[in-house]
Amino acid sequence: MSQIHVTTKINGDETEFLCGPEETLLDVLRDHLGMTGTKEGCGTGDCGACSVTVDGRLVCSCLMLGAEAEGHEIGTIEGVAKGDELHPVQKKFLDHAALQCGICTPGFLVAAKALLDRTLEPTEEEVRYWLAGNLCRCTGYDKIVRAVMDTAAELRGA
């Protein structure tokens, strides 16, 4: 089967890869590029574990072909921390114990950061709606929502 050559930027780095036409961006990240921080829960857009950004917009990498990444900027969980320095939202997830098994966490962090990049004044309702496409079977969501609200408060200096 013919492979497709794709040029993208991932977390700011020019990246080229070859992928099969059926392969999703999630397959490419995990299986070709070794970026296994992005998780697969359902593979059908329901759980959000595979969340990444494309040109800053939050999407499910399981609902996108690798070939569709051509010319676009992809942001993954690996790009959320700056080197060893965790992003504020990552620190708050730890402070609030907003994770248990952790499988949903990369998706939540990428999604939460995408929200905080748009607004530092989300209401709790906005946070809950924004994160409705991210499922967690462990935490019951409340600690996650509090961690995000607290990050927003910290970032706006409140």
């Binding site: 857009g45 917009r57 939050l58 999407v59 999604a111 924004w130 409705a132 496409g133």
Partner: peptide, 9 residues
């Protein structure tokens, strides 16, 4: 339609 992620597409 769908979640924030689905809305993006």
């Amino acid at each position: 339609i769908g979640s924030t992620q689905v809305q993006g597409r």
